[in-house]
Simulated scan of single mutants.
Amino acid sequence: MAQFVTTKENYTMKANVSVIGKDIVIEITGGDNPHIGTVTTLTANTEMQTVRFPSHDGRLHKDDVLARRIGQMIQSQLPGSCTITAGVHVNHISKKQIMVSGSMASDLGKQILNWLSNFDFNAPDPIYYSDSEKPQ
């Protein structure tokens, strides 16, 4: 696992990246109450899809704004699928803290992109049956 961190305006945002074969899972968390507010999926050749979960008051979380920014930055370099969970909550967040959240996500995206370009995804390709073969 790799971990990337950025801090601005008195709060920290983290991205933990796990590798599963040629796929990656990114967990974006931070602030006072880390959680899973959204799940975003993508590959190098597919559009991003997001599920937004309800928060304690029933409104849908907006953490996909962070996940989508990172996803757009790294998408072309993905060797397989990518799942991004995101949940950053800062108690009594200020306008300044909201304003820097995008640049914080960009900072994490740059770090992940650099890591992706240097990581050796040396996982074997899966083997499938041909149309004329069947499991025995």
Rank of each mutant, 00 (worst) to 15 (best):
P79I: 13
T46L: 05
A86V: 08
L113P: 04
S81T: 02
L42M: 15
D107I: 10
K22P: 02
M104R: 02
V17Q: 06
H61L: 06
I28K: 06
T7M: 13
D57I: 04
Q136T: 14
K14G: 02
H35T: 09
Q97D: 11
N16V: 13
N45E: 12
S103P: 06
P54Q: 11
T38K: 08
V25Q: 08
W115C: 08
P126D: 12
I127C: 08
N122W: 00
Q97G: 08
E133C: 05
I20L: 12
G31E: 03
V100W: 01
T41N: 09
G109Q: 03
G102T: 14
V19F: 02
E9G: 06
T29Q: 05
S130L: 05
S81E: 11
I24L: 07
T38S: 15
K14M: 12
M73G: 07
D107E: 12
T83C: 10
K95Y: 03
S76D: 15
E27P: 01
N91M: 04
D107M: 12
V19S: 02
V90H: 10
M48F: 10
E133T: 05
N91E: 10
T12I: 03
V51C: 12
F119L: 06
T7Q: 15
K8R: 15
G80K: 02
L66N: 09
Q3D: 07
P79T: 03
E27V: 09
A44I: 02
S132D: 12
D120A: 13
H56V: 13
Q97V: 04
A44V: 10
F119D: 10
L116Q: 05
Q75A: 12
F121W: 00
G109K: 01
I98L: 13
K14D: 00
T50D: 13
A15Q: 02
G58V: 09
I93C: 08
A105Y: 00
G58K: 03
S132I: 08
C82R: 02
I93W: 00
P126I: 09
A123L: 01
I36V: 15
D32V: 07
Q3C: 14
